[in-house]
Write a protein that binds this DNA or RNA. Structure first.
Lengths: 156, 156
DNA sequence: ATCATTGCAAACCGTTTGCAGCCTT
DNA sequence: AAGGCTGCAAACGGTTTGCAATGAT
């Protein structure tokens, strides 16, 4: 099942209505490599087909965020679809949704990490500082393998 | 040397002028437990002594940020003084200033971590994904030891 | 004396709110 | 048929810009 279908199913199950603007936003996010700003979402939708109101985009994104179907990228505030498929593999509770992202500064693509060695690190930090850690935000920025290879080409 | 003095010295060395508003913002940040929003900075300054214009606060904070004397907390956008004293201990380049914070949701205090086991984790992630990591953002949210103890009291 | 910096007013822009009409259920 | 959702207009609030006055060097 595709991301958009899965997300729509979640909304439906929770009593939301499946509207054309909601479907279109979800499909757009499904196709997007990285994350999109609210403005980018509006522009892309307007360009593709009949326009969607800016206010509606705000409300749709809010709704998707409330239902943990999208999240905001920490460093940019842009909107990204959640990785619904693999989220179950993550050993955290629902609400503590972890989004550890590898963000390519070149192509903007985002690779999601699903709780790597961070738990160990977190335990270690907690032990050393006595801090009671409830949540964490982690983001790596750099170059994805493809862009890193391309950048290598320039120098060659 | 105190934070404010140190920061002013940096500005002076770089050709900026040492003005009263700049000094006052730095002293305020020096005394603050956690991070302050632009609005909080303005209010606190107004309350303490003669008022400072909102616009000036914006410009002063921009200046301090440009010179790596303050940074914004990732999750809240609030302003925090950089830990100039201990920054040298961090094995990273100047521009890659790391701000790994432990933020107490109760009292708002912030404890800075200086590159703990993260480098190992980062290497591991890089190895597994092929991603060329240039920068990272890490933030832990929870309770500081003191607030955690107090919260324990309530339950007892 | 010079020129960076401040303060004030106004512009700007992203986001939110209210409400009527539409469309999903 | 009912009411959630959208679109439009207007309000709102945080941030930026222009410019004259001030103050640091």
């Amino acid at each position: 099942m595709s991301y958009a279908e899965q997300a729509l199913a979640v909304l439906k199950a929770r009593g939301y209505r499946i509207t054309r603007p909601r479907r279109r936003v979800l499909e757009l996010l499904q196709g997007a490599e990285g994350a999109l700003s609210i403005q980018e979402i509006k522009e892309l939708l307007d360009r593709a087909e009949e326009p969607v109101d800016m206010v509606s985009v705000y409300r749709i994104v809010d709704c998707l965020e409330d239902n943990a179907l999208v999240h905001r990228v920490l460093s940019t505030g842009k909107i990204r679809r959640c990785d619904l498929e693999n989220e179950a593999h993550c050993h955290r509770e629902q609400h503590d949704h972890c989004h550890h992202n590898l963000i390519c500064r070149e192509c903007g693509s985002i690779t999601e990490l699903h709780c790597p060695g961070l738990d160990t690190l977190q335990d270690e930090v907690a032990r050393q500082t006595g801090f009671h850690i409830e949540e964490h935000n982690l983001e790596f920025l750099g170059l994805c393998p493809r862009c890193a290879a391309r950048e290598g080409d320039f120098r060659a």
